[in-house]
Design a protein around this nucleic acid. Structure first.
Length: 264
DNA sequence: CTCTATGTTTAATT
DNA sequence: GAATTAAACATAGA
């Protein structure tokens, strides 16, 4: 579920559900998710506070509370936030949840995560995972010159460099795969071999792909629309541009699909 | 049963 | 040391 467009959609939902609300109860019954502190300690730090804002940087969410506390949320591979009616007091709370009340309206906002690769962090300042992120392509735009400077420092494949969260925050396997197809650039190209011309194509492709995916998730409000991809998940199938079978390689442990004819 | 999966951190290797 | 890659994490679905 989570790359920049997915996380941005979750941010907007959380904002709508929680802005101005008071966290009347917090349950975080998942030691793995809140490690290294305990669920009880996590709940103690934020229970009773009022939600002021929900921010996003890359794939990280930051729920800001009055009094200075902050909750950071990373969705890992399968994490998501969902809204439910407030549970009955005796309902088992197998999943982390924030029970919130605002102007008499009660809501329970819950974190679900099948694989539990995600994390919840309660802190008072910003955490290193947040401050060490590179520029966010949606919030900050992509500065082609700054990006180029970072790319020249490494020989690793371009796709892997784009997924480095200190290079650009929020670009994951799908965005990188789709953007490189859109830019007609081989994902294996050594990062430092990228010319200014190619760099500008990649920059525009990333921006276009981010807005396309964000739009697909925002359209029709609540209606879940599975975004379709030109190459991701289509290995062996014909390229939509030239018809040649799409190739699949593994780069730094991540599956990578590309068109051997169009992307050079 | 085997393989793969939208991510990150840590260990191992070059 | 620095750069890069593999392994590990836990679960669902094809």
């Amino acid at each position: 579920m989570p790359e920049l467009p997915d996380v941005e959609k979750v941010r907007r939902e959380l904002l709508a559900w929680l802005a101005g609300a008071i966290l009347t109860d917090v349950r975080a019954n998942d030691a793995r998710l809140v490690r290294p502190i305990t669920p009880a300690s996590f709940a103690r730090r934020i229970r009773g506070a009022r939600v002021v804002d929900v921010a996003r940087r890359g794939k990280w969410l930051r729920i800001e509370l009055d009094g200075g506390a902050r909750v950071f949320s990373h969705l890992g591979m399968t994490g998501d936030w969902v809204a439910r009616e407030l549970a009955a007091p005796d309902e088992p709370h197998e999943r982390p949840r924030f029970d919130a009340v605002r102007r008499g309206t009660r809501r329970s906002v819950r974190y679900v995560d099948a694989r539990r690769f995600g994390r919840l962090v309660a802190a008072r300042g910003d955490i290193p995972e947040w401050t060490e992120l590179g520029p966010d392509p949606l919030a900050d735009g992509i500065d082609a010159r700054a990006l180029g400077a970072k790319l020249t420092r490494s020989a690793r494949p371009l796709k892997i460099a784009l997924m480095d969260q200190t290079v650009l925050a929020g670009v994951g396997n799908i965005l990188a795969t789709e953007a490189l197809f859109r830019a007609k650039v081989d994902p294996r190209t050594p990062s430092r071999a990228v010319s200014p011309k190619v760099l500008s194509r990649v920059t525009r492709a990333l921006e276009a792909e981010i807005s396309r995916e964000l739009e697909a998730r925002t359209r029709c409000g609540h209606e879940e629309e599975a975004p379709s991809f030109a190459v991701y998940g289509r290995a062996g199938e014909p390229c939509l541009t030239c018809g040649k079978a799409l190739a699949h390689v593994v780069l730094a442990g991540r599956g990578t699909t590309y068109c051997p004819r169009c992307q050079r």
